[in-house]
Design a protein around this nucleic acid. Sequence first.
DNA 1: ACCTGAACACCGTTCAAGT
DNA 2: ACCTGAACACCGTTCAAGT
Lengths: 248, 248
Amino acid sequence: MAAAVHTSVWLDGKTTRSRKAEQPAGGLDLEKITEATVRLLDSEGLAKFSMRRLAAELGVTAMSVYWYVDTKDDLLELALDRVMGELDLPGESADGWRDQIRHLAVGYRRLLVDHPWTSPLAGEFLNVGPHANAFSASVLNVVTRTGLPPHGQAGGIAAVFQFVYGFGTVEGHFRDRCARAGVTQDAYFQHAMSAVSRHADTRATIERSKVIMAARGGETVEEMRDRDFEFALDLLFAGIEAMRGDQR
Amino acid sequence: MAAAVHTSVWLDGKTTRSRKAEQPAGGLDLEKITEATVRLLDSEGLAKFSMRRLAAELGVTAMSVYWYVDTKDDLLELALDRVMGELDLPGESADGWRDQIRHLAVGYRRLLVDHPWTSPLAGEFLNVGPHANAFSASVLNVVTRTGLPPHGQAGGIAAVFQFVYGFGTVEGHFRDRCARAGVTQDAYFQHAMSAVSRHADTRATIERSKVIMAARGGETVEEMRDRDFEFALDLLFAGIEAMRGDQR
DNA sequence: ACCTGAACACCGTTCAAGT
DNA sequence: ACCTGAACACCGTTCAAGT
């Protein structure tokens, strides 16, 4: 019973379907389909993506895709793992753990921002494809070098990478929203700030946050976010150091 | 031009539509609609929620709802802010900032887990409704008490609450997925672990993570997550302390 | 082995019409 | 002021049929 539960495309053997020879004919194949899926998701977003839209892009009827893929969800899982392949993972270098974590965090943040559709999918799926696996392996590798006690390593990973996930998600959505509204992030930000300032019930909150924002500084929205991200990472590194001697 | 950009239901004056007297007739009103929306989202999830399904629930035709609400998105924004009202915010008590942050973090985590549909919405919308605003105000209030330098307060907020957002999102999705598959979280977890272990390319990663998981301990999935969450919060608190003297 | 067409059971939203 | 019905332009997916 529990054995019949569907977990992931990657765990059902469908992805290793023997493709015999990569037939170089003009026909479809899983590679072409996944590539087109990513292209469409990047350009039009998750909400507008559909099997029919994809089929049109591939110059094929809607149902052809279903010969290669069982469901739309399976295809999205394939697309997700494909873009995770863009991540540049740190090798077994002599770099300190700080640089390695920073490298992973910066790359993951960029992934979420460049492909905002990954964020709901990464939260939804199990994320056990080959590229997600390589990322996890890299994360596991670096956490053992932090000096965190073993019982705190899972928590440490969560603190760092769930933070990056949350940060990149919100950032990516905002960028996407501005692009689709046809305005710059700075224009949208100004517009939203003044709209919120006009409301009696939010004005007090916004005034307080303006103080904090002024202290943080930064000319553009991008710059402000970069400063917050950097400070948060430094805070996390300091936290890791402080928890090294934690016994319980 | 930029002034025509739609930002949020809360910033367009639609929510303050003069309801004259709260007519106690059996008819619809925004309150009933939002309440039914939350109930449906909780019981059937975001993917299955539709205006037609909602209308049926309200015993009304599909289009009636559109007299009260402009779009489905606006309604989702209303539902999001409504559940944020469940958050128990710390008062101006004598508690230390640690307890106050913990209180907010635990509440926000529970919100995301109890209503998994909030997570994509909180990432997507601006989150400027009255309850979201009260939450923000509470967060701003406590961050000034941490001793963090002003330039690091925005980053500190990000570190803590984006972490909670990421953590609660993944946790909520997993719980939801198990419930819909009709298995316990522990059964699903065991199933996924053994499926992953069977794959050659993920086996090495899984073996390493088993070591970390064993050190962390915990009998159930819930207990394991509680331990990680607690450790991560302690790590963040230690990080905040360490960054108090940060100059730049 | 691969692809198509028609069909089913849905969507969000517009618009003209009813009361 | 509030609600309905029909319609438009879509969805994901099944299933029988073609080559």
